[in-house]
Simulated assay, not measured.
Amino acid sequence: MAARKPKVKRVMSPQQAMPWILTGVAVLLVGVIVALLASEGVFDAGPKSDAERDYQLLVDGLQKNPDDPAILMTLAEVEYDLGKKADAIAHAERAVKVAKDPEGWSVRLAALYVRDGQIKKAKTALETELKGGDGTNDGEAYFLLGQVERDLGDLDAALKALEKAVEIMPVNADVRLVYAEVLEKAGKRDEAATQFQAALKFLPGDERALAGLKRLGVKPEETTSSPHATGTPGQ
């Protein structure tokens, strides 16, 4: 019997092996990238939104200026938007505390209290603001106080504050709308209708004002000219 020929073993040349090596490396890299994406490790280093970017800038600014009320209050407002509510309230309260001139800061603090459902604290902050100066030009404070008093159930106090807000900011349609709604709630239908009509002169076709007039059974007046050119309506 003739001797069997030995089997020939094929040895892959370096040129032949290279595509397989590259394929293996590619598979490995894809696996690593997929793992990182799954854990969000690739993106964790940077902010995911404008609010987070602003937050980081404000945090950096606060480290350099820890007693700057503007940084503290703005940081508080951004923190609240990001859901960091406890930190937000703490920073806002500190802003009011360290401010040399508290005017304006208490209103922003009160606005955060309102958002957080702390209505009584909001009222205290606003009263502090209005007692701090003559209060005659702080329309925003009176507007917010009117809404706070309304939420606390004191319609007389709410109307008093909102009347002052309208006096200071006569062309602010939002103020007139809230004033009209509180007047309506207080049973002062004619006065409410007047304020709804006035709001429509600044915001023609506003659905909220139209709905208020409809509830009162009053037909909206036609607006033919700009109220800014003719003076203050509805007072």
Rank of each mutant, 00 (worst) to 15 (best):
K64C: 11
M73D: 00
L62P: 00
L58D: 02
A90T: 12
Q63R: 15
L112H: 07
D67G: 00
A26M: 08
V98P: 01
A51V: 14
A26N: 08
D44F: 06
I71T: 11
G31Y: 05
L109N: 10
L58H: 03
P69D: 04
R94Y: 01
E40N: 07
A38C: 07
G83Q: 11
A111D: 15
Q56A: 13
D54G: 01
M73H: 02
K64E: 14
A95H: 11
V27K: 02
Y80L: 03
A110Y: 14
V32K: 04
V98T: 06
A26H: 06
R94C: 00
A110Q: 13
A86Y: 06
P102I: 12
K48S: 15
E40A: 05
L82H: 01
P69S: 03
D44P: 03
K100V: 07
G46M: 12
K85A: 11
K84S: 09
L109K: 15
Y113A: 15
F43S: 14
E52C: 14
A90C: 01
G83D: 04
D54T: 09
L57H: 11
E77D: 07
A35I: 04
S49C: 05
D68T: 11
L72Y: 00
D101A: 11
Y113S: 11
D50L: 15
K100T: 14
D68W: 01
W105E: 08
D54C: 01
V107I: 15
A110T: 15
F43K: 12
H91Y: 07
R53C: 05
V78A: 01
A26W: 05
Y55N: 15
E79M: 06
G61F: 04
L57S: 10
W105K: 08
G83K: 11
V59P: 02
K84W: 07
V114E: 13
L58W: 01
L28Q: 05
A86N: 10
D60A: 13
L112K: 03
I33G: 07
A45M: 10
E79V: 03
K97L: 10
G46P: 00
P69W: 05
M73R: 04
V30M: 10
G104Y: 11
L112D: 11
L75H: 07
A38K: 07
